[in-house]
Amino acid sequence: MHIVGLYISPIAIGALKDLILTILSTLLSFVLGILFAAGRLYGHPVIKLVIGWYVEIIRGLPAILQLFIIFFGLTQIGINLSPLTAGLIWLVAYGTGYAVEIFRSGIMDVAQGQREAASALGLGRWITMRKVIVPQAFALMLPALTSFVVLQLKNTTLLYLIGYADIMYQARLGADATEAPGTLYLMAAAAYLIMSLVIGRIGYRLEKRATAYR
């Protein structure tokens, strides 16, 4: 119990940091993901190709390798990033790669008839996207987006490898200092579990509301 009391506040602070990183990187990934998805669907062939390759690279390379290239690799050309900056860049870059595919398939899953109906009414491309396609795509994508946020949360653990003081970092520190690794890792596990359950719950609520029309 003594150990729990000693480490509960560093782990809570770590959890808060991870949560903020998750929210921030998710928002940025969604914005970039939507833009990239639109580019991949409707852009110039060169843009389509570049985004296609971007997605392949992000999906094809191990997560740790990507992070290490950004944090360690870039020092070789004189770019020295703090763990936080490097971590955030990686989370956004990685998240964007996955978000593109979620948004792209969501947009494509909205029936062709919806586009035709919008066109026949004279609605422009932008209004069709905003008023017709995206609201329906959003409802279709919500389960995937919820998993995405949980995945991003879990990805933050990797940042401890470049020295960012998140939950995992604190747990590791405590495990080494106290010789009670079981207790500390269980504390870290509890923190992650609580956060992912909350995210899952929010996703479920949103999904219920977004699909009320069905």
Partner: peptide, 13 residues
């Protein structure tokens, strides 16, 4: 020019 489709294509949301 207005159009009505076989599958209605109303906006379900």
């Amino acid at each position: 020019v207005g159009m009505v489709f076989q599958t209605f294509n109303l906006f379900p949301h």
